[in-house]
């Protein structure tokens, strides 16, 4: 990566300094060489980093990977990694976090989060955590959620409703902020061996 690339990425992110982009490159290198040593993050590598196993299917991993992979070419390039992670910075605009979460949960990318999609995600999280719920309780969870979020009662959550909903329940955005990003140069100090700029 040239200094120009680093500076452009830092500038585009609006959150990271050049040194922080370099520190994130250390993390990127580690993930992108974990299974296929080609300097690109494949889904199995993201899965290994998040789940400590590279096998099995996970709906949420698929969604995260899909949103990171802007070019939709089946790998996460470093630029895409920085773009997506910048949304998770503690200082990133909350509007960006709200939109990113909406896109995550809008499984079929119809511009709405539909009841069917929420059902699918709840079933997926129950399977992931090996919890069983009765159909009645599952329906009750969905009813309650839609009573609260779907203010125009059309059976789906539009972007505006989503925004009002998460602003009323800010804890739903907790996983959209990574406190680690405040201090990446300390977490990955080895960037200093390759740095293009000294702060």
């Amino acid at each position: 990566l040239s200094f120009r690339d680093l500076a452009r990425l830092a500038d585009e992110s609006r959150c990271f300094s050049v040194n922080e982009v370099e520190a994130l490159f250390e993390l990127y290198k580690k993930i992108s060489c974990s299974i296929i040593d080609d300097g690109l993050i494949h889904k199995e590598e993201l899965q290994l980093a998040l789940f400590k196993t590279s096998s099995g299917q996970n709906l949420f991993l698929d969604r995260v990977f899909d949103l990171f992979d802007e070019k939709k070419n089946g790998v996460i390039e470093f630029e895409e990694f920085i773009h997506a992670l910048s949304v998770f910075h503690p200082l990133a605009p909350v509007e960006d976090k709200i939109n990113f979460a909406f896109r995550l949960y809008d499984l079929r990318q119809t511009g709405f989060i539909e009841r069917e999609e929420v059902m699918q995600m709840v079933i997926a999280i129950l399977m992931e955590s090996h919890v069983e719920l009765s159909d009645d309780l599952l329906e009750a969870i969905l009813d309650k959620t839609f009573e609260d979020a779907d203010t125009d009662r059309d059976g789906k959550i539009c972007q505006e409703e989503w925004k009002e909903f998460v602003l009323r329940h800010p804890n739903l955005l907790k996983n959209m902020t990574l406190p680690y990003l405040r201090d990446v140069t300390t977490a990955f100090p080895s960037f200093v061996f390759n740095t293009a700029v000294e702060d």
């Binding site: 993390l27 993930i31 980093a49 998040l50 789940f51 996970n58 709906l59 949420f60 991993l61 698929d62 969604r63 995260v64 992670l85 998770f88 995550l104 949960y105 929420v118 995600m121 709840v122 997926a124 999280i125 129950l126 992931e128 955590s129 309780l137 009750a140 969870i141 969905l142 309650k144 959620t145 609260d148 329940h169 804890n171 739903l172 907790k174 996983n175 990574l178 406190p179 680690y180 990446v184 977490a187």
Partner: peptide, 25 residues
Amino acid sequence: RPAVMNAFELISTSQGLNLGTLFEK
């Protein structure tokens, strides 16, 4: 009826959505 959780509260606990794991050594 007992208090019921918000669906998105449940969903947001997925390991796949908690990217902090990437930074854990």
